[in-house]
Design a protein around this nucleic acid. Structure first.
Lengths: 342, 342
DNA sequence: CTGAAAGCGCTTACAG
DNA sequence: CTGAAAGCGCTTACAG
């Protein structure tokens, strides 16, 4: 054993210390081809002593394989994003892919830049958590030379695999439940329609169920706003101040439901005694908020995981055509909705 | 203009289509050196037409610079992690670094593997969101040939830059507030002590304030458990069932506070009328939960951002020695704590 | 202002 | 079983 003169950062250094060739070191590194036990031992000893770690920069260039997956998240600091990232990350890391994360803070422009960056980094696939899917998005995705899977929005008609919730059916199911509790005049606390899934689909489901039951929807009771507590408060005010109050409000997210209940409390209206409120999403505090919120449960972790699996299959060439996976949902009946007299 | 025979993926293809050399194309790509306007225009036209995107695999190998930052997060689907990742990601992307995310799902072993992976990927720096820092962690960090910054735990004495909350002072401030409201018998809903910051420091702060006020701590009132709602419920039961009940409980996280209030409600105890409960962290629902939770506010987004800035400075060689940044905190007085008769 | 050539650190036929 | 050599797609002195 001799002392190491310089930091050993190249396979060539290992080779010369082990008195062998670069090719042979490469073979033991990758466990490929035959290497005499004695030589292998010598090489392994050198690696252990020197702490040599091969450069995957060079390896990836040679193999034309980055083992990277680009993941675009509009807002990483939200409950649903967190769950999805946890889910997709667990399957990706198990499949030996690394996650290149682009948190775009709701800037569509920055999403497009990330796509560009991903191409430069030669990622093997892309996962895009979608909010709005503009024409520019579609173009950029079409130009990606690697598989793309969109989460939470439907891009299947553009030939891109998608995994999403059955928002419309879920909202309809929740509305039916409200109707079954005797509510006939129901407010909708919704969001802007450029979010197709939450803004459009959930509203459609709401309307489906009303129509089905022969209940006429009152436009004055249907609000569109943002996702924050402020929007919820404003929405509640508008619903309350428009004349005849509803007996129930369907908020399209749990956050909005919480904001609504809060605002109602400030105005002296107790939920559910004086008004019922339902949410959607089943964020973890929904079960523990007072009153516990009746809501729709989605499995966001699994949503992320399924999307990642789909992508892995595509990256490994297993599937050709675009797929569309619809995740299930679950009605969680809790305390924020009560039955009223027919 | 001729039609392009094959997908143009190499700088060489661009060069030949533009009737020039690889070196010149490289110059316009990197805006370095002189290029005649005419030639530049020709090259840019070819790039635009072909949609050529240079490979940063090759570029990084040549430049010995990955522009990658490895980020290790034990649990990405949590409020604090989400905020921190959003914060660090915003400064990193602004500085043109990409984030390689390793979500380790609370497996210390997987953190070590990620560190190994980061070395292979030749990241330029590492951000580690710490929970427990084992001996193996320290060794692995010491072996990293690039700067490392630890978030939320103190690794400064190991020569590693850290940015963390002033947990002890914050817990003491909150406890002082409880004392100032007339509470003398106070329960502590804590967590296990291998989490130094939350388990040990917050508890120490609690004890500091009691000692300061000449109030004796009752060991039967001090619980150690996990971070989940179940632990909170169990903790409340143990506190209640040990004999003389406290008039207030300090929960070391807001989640635990929420869990505690919930459990108290189930046992017919109303907060704050019959018992006060304080939390720490000021998660977004703390302000909207009923009752609104009195708590300590930390700025996790900024915590992540500061850590990233520190790392950027280190990666650019601006600083030599390890730094330690202590973030501030803020007492948020709300409704879950009330004043009781001396 | 431009191009030929070396080199970044690996992998992989290929010849021996 | 092993090693010399070419090549992955770039950048960067260097010579012209």
């Amino acid at each position: 054993m001799e002392t190491i003169p310089y930091p050993v950062t190249r396979i060539r250094d290992v080779a010369s210390l082990a008195k062998t060739s670069v090719s042979t070191v490469s073979r033991v590194l990758n466990n490929s081809g035959y290497v005499k036990a004695e030589v292998r031992a010598r090489i392994e000893a050198v690696i252990a002593e020197t702490g040599y770690v091969p450069s995957s920069l060079a390896k990836d260039l040679q193999r034309q394989q980055s083992s990277l997956v680009g993941v675009i998240i509009p807002k990483i600091n939200s409950y649903t994003s967190g769950e999805m990232v946890a889910g997709l990350s667990s399957v990706l890391s198990e499949q030996r892919y690394s996650v290149l994360l682009a948190s775009t803070d709701n800037h569509p422009q920055s999403e497009l830049e990330s796509l560009k960056l991903f191409r430069e980094k030669r990622v093997n696939g892309v996962l895009l958590l979608g909010t709005e899917l503009s024409e520019a998005h579609r173009l950029a995705m079409a130009q990606m030379p690697v598989p793309v899977v969109v989460i939470a929005q439907d891009a299947a008609r553009h030939g891109i695999s998608s995994v999403l919730q059955d928002e419309r059916a879920a909202a309809a199911a929740l509305t039916r439940y409200l109707l079954s509790c005797g509510h006939r005049r129901i407010g909708l606390l919704g969001v802007h329609e450029f979010d197709i899934q939450v803004g459009v689909e959930r509203k459609q489901g709401f309307l489906d169920a009303l129509r089905e039951a022969g209940v006429e929807a009152d436009p004055g009771l249907m609000i569109q706003g943002g996702f924050d507590f402020q929007s919820a408060a404003r929405g509640v005010d508008r619903i309350l101040d428009q004349g005849r109050a509803p007996s129930a409000i369907l908020a399209v997210t749990d956050r909005l439901a919480v904001g609504a209940i809060s605002r109602l409390a400030e105005r002296g209206i107790v939920v559910p005694a004086q008004m019922s409120v339902a949410g959607m999403g089943d964020i973890d505090l929904a079960a523990v908020f007072q009153p516990r919120i009746t809501t729709i449960r989605y499995d966001y972790f699994q949503t992320g995981a399924r999307a990642a699996s789909l992508l892995v299959d595509a990256m490994q060439g297993a599937v050709a055509a675009a797929q569309k996976i619809i995740m299930g949902y679950q009605l969680q009946i809790r305390d924020s909705v009560r039955t009223v007299g027919g």
